[in-house]
Amino acid sequence: METQNVKMVVTGPFSAGKTAFVQSISEIEVVSTERRISSEAEQIKEATTVAMDFGRITIDDDLVLYLFGTPGQRRFDFMWEILAQGMLGFVVLVDSSKPETFREAKSILETFRAYAPTPYVVSANKQDLPDAWDLDDLRIALRLDESVKLLPCVATDKESVKKVLLELLYAILEEMEEKE
């Protein structure tokens, strides 16, 4: 029997933790397209994703889930629409300790919603950092409706990533039930 492939996308601003998120849960070593950062303004970390991160979770013999992490820098946003095609849902990852990226996160969220009307959740990453904004404040800053799931997360922690993915899957189910 032919294997069925499904995909979910992890997006968010530069340095939100998308690569770490995919790495935490993928059963394979993440196929990463990281390059050294050339722009001085963005030298928070040494390397950044330029095309996509690519992780895999085998569900059973005939179903595989692929996780794609998008590049966070705007100059690689031509990849976003390609990655968004046919996705089951998407996660918008936000660095809770960097308010300067919130506006960008909201913009990316709107862009992905325009690409594909699929369910999504917003995940507040780096909640373990002392400067992390709490969820209520983040919801206001990101202007998220009460109906949008905003979930705490530490992308380096597998359990935390699992919870986010599960919430996205529950959101997909809920959406299907709402439409019945």
């Binding site: 499904v6 849960i25 979770i57 085998t58 569900i59 059973d60 699929t118 993915l165 899957l169 189910l173």
Partner: peptide
Amino acid sequence: QREKLSVEEKQEKKALVGRLIARIQ
């Protein structure tokens, strides 16, 4: 508009999501 699924497609998709949930758990 989100894609309109037939009853069978919906059941199939629900089952698929159910499998994903079970595995990730």
